[in-house]
Simulated assay, not measured.
Amino acid sequence: MASPAYDDYLKTIYHHTEWQGDPITPSQLAATLGLAPSSVTEMVRKLAAQGLVSHRPYGPISLTAAGERRAAATIRRHRLIETWLVREFGYAWDEVHDEAEVLEHAVSDRLLEGIDERLGRPRFDPHGDAIPDAEGRVQRVPFVLLADARPGHTGTVLRVSDRDSELLRAVESAGVEVGAEVTVTDAGALRLGDADIPLPPGAPDAVWLTV
């Protein structure tokens, strides 16, 4: 069944466990989507009836194999479009999320394949999130959240969360970008080259590094 609402739910559930291991709870899902818990409960029931999620009352929600394939397909569209907008149209990385939210439901499979080919089959979007291939597979490397990294840890910036566009701009202004090699100096700062860079509030919980 084609349904943008279904896809938004599945995408959110998929997102939740990409960078940490705990499954999402109904209350977390409701908060992320900005919906009433009763609305989420009803939609989760429908998704479970379609065989897309696994859920028991008051328990966490997990994607089934079918749900994960469908979520990966939607996320592939979203992240390829984000990458396309940045590379081909000069969008900044904090500007592409809302555009991609609209376009992911409108772009045909043929056009998406053309975008993927033109971009050289990218593996990651501008924020460092993995782009699933046409079969839903992704390639990831071991990672650590900056907030959990010990002082002295050196690694490459893998990902900066795109949830907060203002924070994205602040992190970029500080000189931190995906692919940069940094050293953790304390809970709120990184060393980039010879410079110590203070990070804006919230950044330690929005930046991931290689281990």
Results as ranks from 00 to 15, higher is better:
Met1Gln: 11
Pro4His: 04
Tyr6His: 02
Asp8Glu: 14
Tyr9Thr: 06
Leu10Gln: 06
Leu10Arg: 06
Leu10Ala: 08
Lys11Val: 05
Glu18Ser: 12
Gly21Glu: 10
Ile24His: 06
Pro26Phe: 01
Ser27Val: 10
Leu29Gly: 04
Leu35Asn: 04
Ser39His: 13
Ser39Asp: 14
Val40Met: 06
Val40Phe: 00
Met43His: 15
Gly51His: 09
Pro57Leu: 06
Pro57Ser: 10
Pro57Trp: 10
Pro60Trp: 02
Ile61Gln: 03
Ser62Leu: 13
Leu63Gly: 11
Arg70Lys: 12
Ala71Asp: 08
Ala72Gly: 09
Arg76Asp: 07
Leu80Asp: 05
Glu82Phe: 07
Thr83Ala: 12
Arg87Tyr: 11
Arg87Met: 11
Tyr91Val: 05
Tyr91Thr: 03
Ala92Leu: 01
Ala92Glu: 12
Trp93Pro: 02
Trp93Ala: 07
Glu95Gly: 09
His97Val: 10
Ala100Asp: 03
Ala100Asn: 07
Val102Ser: 01
Leu103Tyr: 06
His105Val: 02
Asp109Cys: 05
Leu111His: 07
Leu112Ala: 07
Glu113Cys: 05
Gly114Tyr: 03
Ile115Gly: 02
Asp116Gly: 01
Asp116Asn: 10
Leu119Gln: 04
Arg123Met: 12
Arg123Trp: 00
Pro126Ile: 11
Pro126Leu: 09
His127Val: 09
Ala130His: 08
Ala130Thr: 04
Asp133Phe: 12
Glu135Ser: 15
Gly136Asp: 12
Arg140Met: 11
Arg140Tyr: 08
Pro142His: 13
Leu146Ala: 09
Ala147Leu: 03
Arg150Asn: 13
Thr154Lys: 12
Gly155Ala: 10
Gly155Gln: 12
Val157Ser: 06
Val157Met: 09
Arg159Pro: 06
Val160Pro: 02
Asp162Gly: 12
Arg163Pro: 00
Arg163Thr: 10
Arg163Ser: 12
Ser165Leu: 02
Glu166Cys: 05
Leu167Gln: 09
Leu168Ser: 09
Arg169Trp: 04
Ala170Asn: 11
Val171His: 01
Val171Ser: 05
Ala174Ile: 09
Val176Cys: 01
Ala180Lys: 13
Glu181Asp: 12
Glu181Thr: 05
Val184Asp: 01
Asp186Glu: 08
Ala187Tyr: 00
Leu190Trp: 07
Asp194Met: 08
Ala195Phe: 11
Ala195Val: 15
Asp196Gln: 11
Ile197Val: 14
Pro201Asp: 15
Gly202Ile: 08
Ala206Phe: 03
Ala206Val: 02
Val207His: 04
Thr210Gln: 01
Thr210Pro: 08
